[in-house]
């Protein structure tokens, strides 16, 4: 079995807890907001200047001046703060957020990763990705384990242009959860129906299998596209 994109987001949400200050990148990461435990105070950061992004507004709740980093309208959670760019990037680059969840094109075994320049994209855009990557203590990557052509995305050395060096702490894919450690990549959890050997077969870099590795505990809806609940 493999996780859907929402399934990966659901699993990441289980690892975020009260008091965490989290930036969610585009793609799978932004889906994490749908699966957070709303009884816990987890603050979502938006690089344009919000700490405490709430759910998307209903149509009659839209404030034309209130948008999040994806440029769409948003609401604020209780206790939110709004600020300007220097403060927002001090939070990011200065290491004040606890987590950034980011998509990636490739992750290397030493924690290097590439996510800003898609091969073949002629017009580059970087935004705040590099600032988040160099500053945030817990960089979690959310991505498919292999490309749509079956090529491993967890590699010995990144071929795509780097976002930052040696910063990824954990990788969540549709098959596994892998920690980046000083000793190398440590396989922690594997989707049911797979085993460490089958995950290694889809991974270019060497995996160290954690002695206490286990099957990922996820609901069936995280694999079949049916509506997931947090």
């Amino acid at each position: 079995m493999m996780l859907t994109r929402d399934g990966i987001a659901w699993r990441i949400a289980r690892d975020l807890h009260e008091g965490d200050y989290v930036n969610l990148g585009v793609g799978i990461p932004v889906l994490v907001s749908n699966y957070l435990d709303r009884t816990q105070e987890i603050f979502l950061h938006s690089e344009n200047g919000i700490l405490g992004v709430g759910p998307r507004p209903k149509r009659d709740e839209i404030d034309l001046d209130l948008i999040s980093a994806g440029k769409g309208f948003c609401t604020l959670s209780t206790g939110a703060a709004i600020f300007d760019q220097p403060i927002s990037f001090a939070m990011m680059r200065g290491g004040h957020l606890s987590h950034a969840i980011l998509g990636a094109i490739e992750v290397a075994e030493n924690g290097d990763f590439a996510n800003w320049k898609v091969p073949g994209e002629a017009v580059p855009g970087v935004g705040g990705a590099m600032d988040l990557a160099v500053g945030t203590p817990n960089i979690y990557v959310a991505m498919s384990h292999v490309t749509n052509k079956g090529k491993p995305k967890i590699v010995k050395t990144c071929a795509a242009p780097l976002t930052a060096r040696q910063c990824v702490k954990r990788i969540y894919t549709d098959l596994a959860i892998i920690d980046v450690t000083a000793q190398g990549l440590v396989l922690r959890e594997v989707m049911p129906g797979n085993d460490p050997a089958s995950v290694q077969a889809k991974t270019e870099a060497n995996l160290i299998v954690a002695p206490d590795w286990r099957e990922m505990d996820v609901p069936e809806t995280a694999t079949n596209g049916a509506r997931l609940r947090n």
């Binding site: 990037f89 580059p124 590099m130 600032d131 780097l162 060096r165």
Partner: peptide, 30 residues
């Protein structure tokens, strides 16, 4: 092309009368 936080800080440096600054953002990248 300038990383967003670097763009912000380069503008801030100009406004604050600074001659520049060192940032880890972008080190080791193209």
């Amino acid at each position: 092309l300038v990383p967003q936080g670097t763009l912000v800080e380069r503008i801030r440096a100009a406004g604050a009368g600074l001659g520049g600054f060192y940032t880890p953002t972008g080190a080791g990248t193209e």
